[in-house]
Design a protein around this nucleic acid. Structure first.
Lengths: 197, 197
DNA sequence: GAAAAACTGTGTCAAATGACACACTAACAC
DNA sequence: GTGTTAGTGTGTCATTTGACACAGTTTTTC
């Protein structure tokens, strides 16, 4: 069984977390769907339960909540290549507190909860792989989030320019400012200062 | 085999995450040590690798990094009853970026990395229990951290008054302010405003 | 391609914050 | 106890930030 080129990229990504037999990888991959979004398409709707995990292959999605005034509060910006979901909805079966919309054309992989459960139940090797992936992704995300929360907005912006330059280029200034926890005017001041210095 | 009363509390806590056989729980408990700290004692030293997980039974510990000026930047305040460790050090075997000191007399449980590995390797039921605990604690902490990072300092303070009143009472104002990401003067202004309103 | 909508750049101003200063109190060591 | 150190309450002031306003630009829609 040969894979599409793109599926092979996903397999390489998953193998980082510990290799598994070809048969097990085939079993896993059979539960994953490859899908696309056009710019502006909704990946996750507000208030709907999130029953899948995602892995973006190309493009970016913008996840945000809405405050009382209807302004978008950016919660996350996801791009290639990492696995993620809306934790509080996926784990606790609650309605999603956020809406996720494609900022550009997007290619992504989707693993439904049913597939996720089937893989974990299939055998020990797959269950171990899924556990390792979950633990690693959760701990990395937690470390990154805690690190970010102890930085100023300017430091966080510089970190993004350094480590995620594509995100800074593609994401609207308003969404980026909201992600950094500051107003768009303040982000503008930071950028102006950096340009002139 | 009967347990000390305090050990029984830990077992009850662990059983929340899915029950296991008596034999397995005995095996697990044999790897856990109960220890104490006096006020001011160091639980974790700056720059040392963290090779244990902890579960505070009584009292509070203050975990902080130091900035260039030598000021304490509070990273976490841990009290009863939850399991935790310094993730970035425990998982990646790196020197601890934080120092942890008892704010009061403390009783706690300690599970060394050796014990942790032995429990995971012992059998399927114990491995599954540890995985479930790890995933749940990581995801809850991540959800809480992300929720906190989208709140103002005042909202975070009110949340603590509501949900962790003991922490607010016991922890020095400076440490609390640092934990909330504001100066002690600003925390004082918030408190003054709340008292008079 | 014209109109509408969304987004961006920038100035002004009021509010919030941090830095500093200093008096006061509590905790600790001897 | 007494002196020393760490921590707290509070006022002043300069800086930073967010809110608002509005003109210019880009993107979308029909």
């Amino acid at each position: 069984m040969a894979y599409l080129y793109s599926m092979q990229a996903l397999i390489d990504y998953l193998n980082q977390f510990g290799s598994v037999s070809k048969a097990n990888m085939d079993f896993l991959v059979r539960h994953i769907e490859e899908k696309t979004l056009k710019k502006g398409d909704h990946l996750i709707d507000l208030g709907q339960p999130v029953n899948s995990m995602y892995c973006i292959e190309e493009g970016y999605v913008h996840c945000f909540a809405l405050n009382e005034e209807g302004e978008k509060l950016t919660r996350r910006i996801e791009g290639p290549i990492s696995c993620w979901t809306v934790l509080e909805s996926f784990y606790d079966l609650e309605p999603s507190p956020v809406e996720c919309i494609a900022l550009s054309p997007v290619k992504y992989f989707e693993l439904s909860r049913k597939g996720y459960d089937a893989i974990k139940a299939e055998n020990e090797e797959l269950n171990g792989l899924i556990s390792r992936i979950t633990e690693r992704l959760l701990s990395e995300k937690l470390i990154a989030t805690m690190k970010y929360s102890s930085m100023t907005a300017e430091e966080r912006y510089l970190d993004m320019v350094e480590n995620q330059p594509d995100v800074v280029k593609i994401v609207p200034v308003q969404a980026l400012a909201s992600f950094l926890g500051i107003s768009r005017e303040t982000l503008h001041r930071i950028r102006r200062k950096l340009v002139t210095s």
